[in-house]
């Protein structure tokens, strides 16, 4: 089935409008409010701090932990509060997507906690979480190899689309989700999941489009981080 035109009129490789703000919280050491279309995520970072229970500590390098919390009112049908299986899996995937970028060897035994709150959901929440979280980590002054940028790629009908929304995720003509995260400088992939049906060629295409599109996201993240300090600089 041919998907000829995106509902919101975007080009197939076009991202939704983005807004990135850092330093939005007082208590968290780093924070970021990241909005991509109608998906809106708040991330806050604490640490490095002591990790409990003790047996989870790694004496060689620190640990990144993530807690993905979906607000009950972020979706149309109220979501029951508290983490279910989905939230637990996503938390783990987000942490794994961030970990390669953080220089954890400087903090053996310690943990860096990343909390992400999904305030409003319109698909791509794990990708937005990764963007928000890595920006918040940089805002916290954490030593990092790169900022992680992520985009929800998808094959909707017969088209490879960037930054798919809820309508596309539920598209009747077939939708394949491909959330993907990169360290933009090196192009290394830190998250890749796929759910649907796709040919190897199309997957390769989706990855390469994603690789290009995250550069736009990265620029926004960078802009937000430096804007905090530009102020009335001479």
């Amino acid at each position: 089935m041919s998907y000829t035109k995106r509902v919101d009129g975007r080009a197939f490789d076009e991202l939704r409008p983005m807004s990135v703000k850092v330093g939005v919280l007082e208590n968290a050491l780093g924070s970021c409010l990241f909005q991509m279309g109608k998906t809106k995520v708040l991330a806050g970072v604490y640490g490095p701090r002591q990790l409990y229970p003790r047996f989870l500590r790694n004496p060689e390098k620190g640990t990144v932990r993530c807690f993905y919390n979906m607000y009950s009112f972020s979706v149309s049908d109220r979501k029951r509060p508290g983490p279910g299986r989905r939230e637990k899996e996503l938390s783990e995937k987000i942490a794994q997507a961030l970990e390669p970028a953080v220089m954890l060897e400087k903090f053996p035994d310690a943990v860096v906690d990343v909390f992400v709150e999904i305030i409003q959901a319109d698909a791509g929440t794990r990708c937005a979480s990764i963007c928000a979280a890595s920006t918040a980590l940089a805002d916290a002054g954490m030593p990092m190899k790169d900022i992680v940028s992520s985009v929800a790629m998808g094959k909707i009908g017969d088209k490879i689309c960037a930054d798919i929304d809820k309508y596309e995720e539920d598209y009747e003509g077939g939708a394949t989700d491909i959330p993907i995260a990169f360290m933009p400088r090196t192009g290394e992939i830190t998250l890749l999941q796929l759910d649907g049906e796709i040919s190897p060629e199309d997957l390769k295409k989706a990855i390469s489009v994603g690789r290009e599109k995250v550069k736009e996201i990265y620029e926004k993240q960078k802009e937000a981080l430096t804007a905090k300090y530009k102020g009335d600089k001479q």
Binding site: L25, A43, Y46, R49, N69, S72, P81, F115, E117
Partner: peptide, 11 residues
Amino acid sequence: VGLELSPIAAP
């Protein structure tokens, strides 16, 4: 009514 003291709010 439910209010969560999310760990994002304080260490």
